[in-house]
């Protein structure tokens, strides 16, 4: 089981035993990590699973497709390492992944 660390805006961190094959968003929700709303349930349609992938992991987590890009474009706090957690599929290769959560989801 890949271990993934999510850091809330307050600095509080949560290391979870993630399940490969599921999205990062789903893993965070299943483990009760606060700070991800996921209003649309993972359809890349709401933008409320916004997260920031740490620099070292950008390559391994892949790139946002056009729809994800469009949704990210609407976030006022969008950064270069912004991703939607529902569009990152967890695999064993992501063991050790660290992501930061934003101050708010909207």
């Amino acid at each position: 089981m890949p271990k993934i660390t999510l850091i809330e805006f307050s600095g509080q961190d949560h290391t979870i035993d993630a399940e490969a094959g599921k999205s990062l968003m789903q893993n965070a929700i299943d483990n009760g990590v606060p700070g991800i709303d996921a209003d649309c349930g993972g359809a890349c349609a709401c933008g409320t699973c916004h997260c920031f992938v740490s620099e070292d992991w950008l390559a391994a987590t892949g790139e946002a497709d056009a729809m994800e890009e469009a949704m990210l474009g609407m976030r006022p706090d969008r950064a270069d390492n912004s991703r939607l957690a529902c569009q990152i599929e967890v695999s064993d290769e992501l063991d050790g992944l660290v992501v930061n959560l934003p101050e708010f989801q909207m």
Binding site: D39, C46, M71, M106
Partner: peptide, 20 residues
């Protein structure tokens, strides 16, 4: 269990800006 899973705010790039 999942109260925010509704379509009242729409989805996609026009999703309600004032939802929060």
């Amino acid at each position: 269990a999942n109260p925010r899973h509704h379509v009242s705010f729409g989805f996609g790039i026009h999703r309600c800006m004032g939802n929060r």
